[in-house]
Design a protein around this nucleic acid. Structure first.
Lengths: 345, 345
DNA sequence: CTGAAAGCGCTTACAG
DNA sequence: CTGAAAGCGCTTACAG
């Protein structure tokens, strides 16, 4: 008759005592090691479950010299709702979380709006994880390169910049920009502007796609139709409103993001013009709202949940010592109301 | 002459060897223990920094019998952009991340769209962290109660339900609903509808605030003006469009969220009516887009970054053994274009 | 098929 | 002011 049967099982030793086996056997049983008799394994596993015991991962990982942790570093300021495309990143975060969970890795979330390479290199995200995923490459390229030199597994969401020393997963930005522009040309637009700041590598590639689409269709590129527009909703609308009050000698605009596109639509409408009748507009990202604006937004979509998975797959391969190349996700043009057939000309 | 001066410092022993002290002294020095000579401390700290060594948290935490980890469980499906108010949660996540970092806790992110109490109770989020923050109370109240019985520190973002056994931090929903409704009455609206599903406790409280505002101003509550509307943008617009085709015998509507409000505006406009001239609309949350819709949206705002901090503060107090009560965040009405003064009547 | 023992990297009471 | 030793909870080569 065992007394104290309901005693709290706090560690492997307690469980082993209860089952009348050694700690080693208990460990093997819980890890389903085939060297242990099946019956013993099942008995131990049932016992563990019954008493709500599960292996202490901290101790296991210490012993196994690993972390089972992947850090995700958000290099955007997520504490401001200005940048609507953050929504896009939440979706990606969900994809990453699910993919990591499937591989039994923990997701350590770090928020580092301004990346301080030296500080980050010393920090936990870097030193106590098996690898890192960086979200929001933006203009922090130099610091990322610096971190890459530490030779720890890392992968960055963004666009491959020529002298980068890290692995990148991102959208096929060139093709995305190209698709949007071709669609506008094909629906009869003649003077197509480009809205967006091309200091950002992703935007620069979208811009290249735009230029070559024009070229392919025999339309001369007019540099005066490239307008630098801020990335946030707030300033984008002001800038575009200002711009439209000065000139509207274009019949379409390719925007670098849905946020910018929505700002553009709003500004065009305030100017008393119609989208798409007077000016057609395309976005990029296909955020949830794109299907619900008035008019609904034609945009370049990518499977962002899949992007999260891909980031994880790539990182895990690197953790396992494989060499990995960059990946560009396929883009797809989603045609909605903001780009109807050109009316005149 | 030390040879191998650039040898990799992998642990405390290496550092101690290099500095010609014992492991114990090295440990105390890095933890800035005043029992160690100041000079020794500084020397060791400099050495650690120089060689890029930092204490292995896994080992430290194992020894210290703690985790230094807080789990954040997202009970929403973040992998779908339908629910625009997710944006709201990303912002909250930022607040949580920053508050935890300030307290030297790691943030373990778990995505559990459908919460399985039994599974979660066994899982890492629960067993290997010092406490848990749940985001997205919604209708998972029963499971949360079940988890609460494990007596582990946990705090939930949501609304205090009568028989709950967990600590809640949330918006002052009653007051929020009340503010919005009073504002509509004060600007001359007579027949004010309510859009939203009140099975959700937060929404139910907002509804109560709406009802009592009517009552206070001597307006009879008309149950036929309460419409159940789905929470997602997609279905909300369809439902409201359908609704408006049947009846429009109201001149204002209090919506349970900005998402619903934006859907409502869009549906009203499709009906050929004007917001706010024919129907005024209020939202809830003040998501980034609220300031950029057409018309811009009058809504109930709460300081969501502060909400994140509050969740963390509360949880940390519980981890330290304090008993904690619920907290309701102050709400603030932000008046924009969607609720101009009533034109007629 | 199972167990005794060593050791992952740390911290701290105890001793000096 | 500093060190030797024990131990946090686990896993695994080695031995039987």
């Amino acid at each position: 008759m065992n007394s104290g049967r309901r005693k709290k099982i706090a560690n492997l030793q307690d469980l082993a005592d209860l089952a009348q086996v050694s700690r080693a056997t208990a460990s093997r049983a819980l890890n389903n090691n085939p060297r242990i008799a099946l019956e013993t394994r099942q008995r131990l596993q049932a016992l563990a479950h019954e008493h709500g015991y599960s292996i202490n991962r901290r101790a296991r990982d210490l012993r196994l010299q690993r972390n089972s942790v992947v850090s995700v570093v958000f290099m955007l300021d997520i504490r401001s709702q200005q940048n609507m495309s953050d929504l896009f990143f939440l979706d990606m975060l969900g994809g990453i979380a699910d993919a990591l969970a499937a591989k039994d890795y923990d997701l350590l979330l770090a928020h580092a709006p301004v990346i301080d390479a030296a500080k980050l290199a010393d920090g936990r995200a870097m030193t106590q994880s098996d690898g890192i995923i960086f979200i929001g490459q933006e203009r922090q390229h130099a610091q990322l390169n610096e971190l890459a030199d530490s030779n720890r597994p890392m992968v960055v969401w963004g666009h491959p910049v020529p002298d980068k020393r890290y692995v990148v997963v991102g959208s096929d930005n060139y093709n995305g920009g190209n698709q949007a522009t071709r669609h506008l040309i094909d629906t009869g637009r003649k003077r197509i502007a480009f809205f967006g700041n091309t200091a950002n590598p992703e935007n620069a590639a979208r811009f290249e796609g735009y230029r070559s689409a024009l070229c392919d269709r025999g339309i001369a590129f007019d540099p005066s139709l490239h307008f630098d527009v801020p990335f946030t909703m707030e300033s984008a609308r002001d800038t575009i409103t200002q711009l439209l009050s000065e000139r509207t000698d274009f019949d379409a605009v390719v925007c670098v993001s849905d946020v910018v596109a929505l700002a553009a639509i709003s500004a065009v409408q305030r100017q008393g013009l119609s989208v798409p009748n007077d000016i057609a507009v395309t976005g990029y990202d296909d955020i949830g709202l794109a299907a619900y604006s008035s008019p609904t937004l034609t945009t370049v979509r990518q499977d962002i949940g899949r992007a999260g998975e891909l980031l994880v797959e790539t990182l895990l391969r690197m953790i396992n010592g494989e060499a990995c190349g960059d990946t560009a996700l396929t883009t797809e043009l989603v045609v909605r109301e903001s780009t109807g057939q050109a009316q005149s000309s």
